Each structure stands twice: as structure tokens, then as C-alpha cells.
Computed example of a mutant assay.
Amino acid sequence: MTHQRKQIGSGRNAIGDFAPKLAELTDDVLFEDVWNRPELSPRDRSLITVAALVAGGDSDQLRFHLKHAKDNGVTESELIEAITHLAFYAGWPKAMTGVATAKQVFTA
């Protein structure tokens, strides 16, 4: 297996002063443990996460994870294609919201 870039959370930086336990779980469980498991690459985890966030209509979290996906090697065109594909499985309005969010992130 090739070496994968270690995934690091930023929960403590973002919300640690306000919700310390949630920040701790974000950094220590979600990122330190789950995101760094070797069974899936960070790239694959990013695609799955973006798909779940689009399907759930979670555009606030989607902004972070679109950038994170690019850091993990997913291209903008692949992300747009994934969102387009989701229109037929997650719903047209959620895909339209997802692509509008992606446009904001990618053109900022």
C-alpha cells in the first residue's frame, strides 16, 4: 500500500471554544481515526462524503468538504460530475444546491 496523506481535523480551531466535546470528537475520532483508516483512500472518502452531504442538503459542511476533496486529489470536474449524477438519486433540488455551493467554492 502506498503512503497516504494524513487527514487532520480542524474542529478545535473552528468550534473548540464553544463546543469542546464536539470539536474533540471531530478531530480525534472522525479525522484521526475514521478518515485515516487504510481501507479507503482519502480521495474515495472525500467523494463519499461530498455525495452524502449533497444528498442530505448540508451545504455548510459541503463547502469545507469540497475544498478537502480537492486537497485529496479529486478534481473540480469530477466533483461537478458527481453532483450531476446525484441529481437522479438524491433529488434535483439538492443537486442544484450542491452545484451552486461548488460554484461559490471553486470561483472564490
Score class of each variant (00 low, 15 high):
Ala108Val: 09
Phe88Val: 02
Gly91Gln: 01
Ala69Ser: 07
Thr49Arg: 03
Val74Ile: 10
Val34Tyr: 06
Glu78Gln: 06
Ala108Pro: 10
Thr26Tyr: 03
Ser10Thr: 14
Glu81Tyr: 03
Val54Ala: 00
Asp60Phe: 15
Leu47Ser: 00
Ala102Thr: 09
Leu25Ser: 13
Glu78Trp: 01
Asp33Ala: 06
Asp44Tyr: 05
Glu76Asp: 14
Gly91Arg: 03
Ser41Tyr: 05
Thr75Ile: 07
Arg63Leu: 00
Pro93Trp: 01
Gly16Trp: 06
Pro42Asp: 01
Pro20Tyr: 11
Ser46Asn: 03
Gly16Lys: 11
Asp28Asn: 08
Lys70Trp: 13
Thr97Gly: 05
Phe106Asp: 06
Met96Trp: 09
Trp92Val: 06
Asp27Met: 02
Tyr89Met: 00
Glu39Gly: 04
Phe18Tyr: 14
Met96Arg: 11
Ile83Ser: 05
Met96Ser: 10
Gly73Glu: 09
Ile48Phe: 11
Asn36Ala: 07
Met96Cys: 10
Ile15Glu: 05
Lys103His: 09
Leu66Ser: 02
Ala108Leu: 11
Ala23Leu: 06
Asn13Leu: 14
Gln7Glu: 14
Ala100Gln: 08
Ile48Thr: 08
Gly73Asn: 07
Lys21Pro: 00
His68Gly: 10
Glu78Ser: 03
Ala100Ile: 09
Trp92Phe: 08
Ile48Met: 14
Ala14His: 07
Lys70Thr: 08
Ile80Val: 13
Asn13Met: 12
Thr97Val: 10
Ala95Glu: 01
His65Ser: 01
Gly16Cys: 06
Ala102Glu: 01
Ala19Lys: 08
Gln104Pro: 13
Trp92Gly: 07
Ile48Val: 15
Pro42Lys: 01
Ala55His: 14
His65Met: 02
Phe18Cys: 05
Ala95Trp: 04
Thr49Ser: 02
Gln104Arg: 14
Phe18Thr: 10
Thr84Cys: 13
Ser46Gly: 03
Arg5Ile: 04
Leu40Asn: 00
Phe106Leu: 14
Glu81Met: 12
Leu40Tyr: 13
Ile15Ser: 05
Ser10Gly: 14
Ile8Phe: 08
Leu47Ala: 03
Lys67Asn: 09
Glu78Asp: 02
Arg63Gln: 00
Gly11Cys: 01
Glu39Val: 12
Leu86Arg: 06
Ser46Tyr: 07
Val34Leu: 09
Gly91Lys: 00
Ala100Asp: 06
Trp35Thr: 03
Gln61Asn: 15
Ile8Gln: 13
Ala55Asp: 13
Val74Gln: 02
Ala51Glu: 08
Leu25Cys: 10
Ala87Met: 05
Phe88Glu: 02
Leu22Glu: 07
Leu79Gly: 00
Glu24Gly: 04
Thr2Cys: 08
Val54Trp: 05
Thr101Lys: 08
Arg5Asp: 13
Met96Val: 11
Glu39Asn: 05
Gly16Tyr: 04
Leu40Ala: 05
Ala90His: 13
Asp33Asn: 07
Asn72Arg: 06
Asp58Ala: 15
Ala69Cys: 08
Ala23Ile: 04
Asn13His: 10
Ala102Ser: 06
Thr107Asn: 08
Asp27Trp: 00
Lys70Phe: 11
Arg63Thr: 01
Thr84Pro: 11
Ala52Asn: 15
Ala108Asp: 04
Pro20Asp: 10
